[in-house]
């Protein structure tokens, strides 16, 4: 835990984990990066557009028996809409992403592509286009490519493992299995990242400290 003044506005900002070097200043929305030399400014973030997501920074829950807390978010957009990826910090320091799109939630964790060893994913990672409907076998389970598109970052908040500035554009491929398993491959230039997980519900996560939304009864889970 490290608390420093924001180099831009002076407001105190807290870095919780060395694995998460990025932080958006709550006050001035500067994208800050922590390094051995101190805290620098990587760019200027944007205000998050109004939405009625039930998740907020500070929402807590449990996934597969492990407690987590939401500490950051990136809002992505594509041609036909936008969605949130909430960064969840688990006990022990690991982190996962709680994706929120079209009212559904999925929890995914980054996995090295080399470990996944899927020919189809490797092809896409090397620059081939992903074709919806094509199959990829991962850990003996067949996943189908649901969609593939260019996505850009609209805004971000809280702590993050990378610098996500407005306008940052990557290629994103979603995969789904019959079992409810969900995965995605993200590619930027020569680099690719793979995230693997499954669909979840807020009830299943025993999510609490949800965002209060005017006129709606907040469910109590757990």
């Amino acid at each position: 835990m490290l608390t420093l003044p924001c180099p831009n506005c002076g407001a105190p900002v807290t870095f919780r984990s060395p694995a998460l070097p990025n932080r958006v200043c709550d006050h001035c929305r500067s994208m800050l990066v922590r390094s051995d030399a101190g805290v620098g400014i990587a760019g200027q973030g944007a205000a998050l557009p109004f939405d009625v997501s039930p998740i907020q920074i500070g929402t807590r829950g449990r996934f597969d028996g492990r407690a987590f807390e939401v500490i950051g978010r990136v809002r992505w957009s594509w041609d036909d809409g936008s969605w949130n990826e909430w960064l969840c910090l688990f006990e022990g320091g690991a982190h996962g992403w709680l994706g929120e799109a079209m009212g559904d939630f999925m929890m995914t964790f980054e996995r090295p592509l080399a470990e996944v060893r899927s020919a189809e994913l490797d092809r896409i990672a090397r620059g081939a286009p992903a074709l919806p409907g094509r199959k990829a076998e991962i850990d003996g389970e067949e996943l189908a490519i649901a969609d593939a598109r260019q996505v850009s970052c609209i805004a971000a908040e809280g702590e993050l493992p990378f610098t996500a500035l407005p306008g940052w554009t990557i290629y994103s491929v979603d995969l789904k299995a019959a079992s409810g398993r969900a995965a995605s491959l993200q590619r930027e230039g020569d680099e690719a990242w793979f995230y693997d997980g499954r669909y979840v519900t807020l009830a299943e996560l025993s999510a609490n400290n949800l965002r209060a939304i005017e006129g709606w009864t907040m469910p109590r889970y757990g």
Binding site: P49, F50, L210, I213, W216
Partner: peptide, 28 residues
């Protein structure tokens, strides 16, 4: 969690008729 409740809806104006359209699932 008795924080200030987030408003649930957003009003926008129809670019064609000017009518006030309520956006009830903003962000989605």
């Amino acid at each position: 969690d008795a924080a200030v409740a987030q408003p649930a809806a957003k009003a926008l104006s129809c670019p064609n008729c000017g009518g006030t359209v309520t956006l009830r699932a903003a962000g989605y």
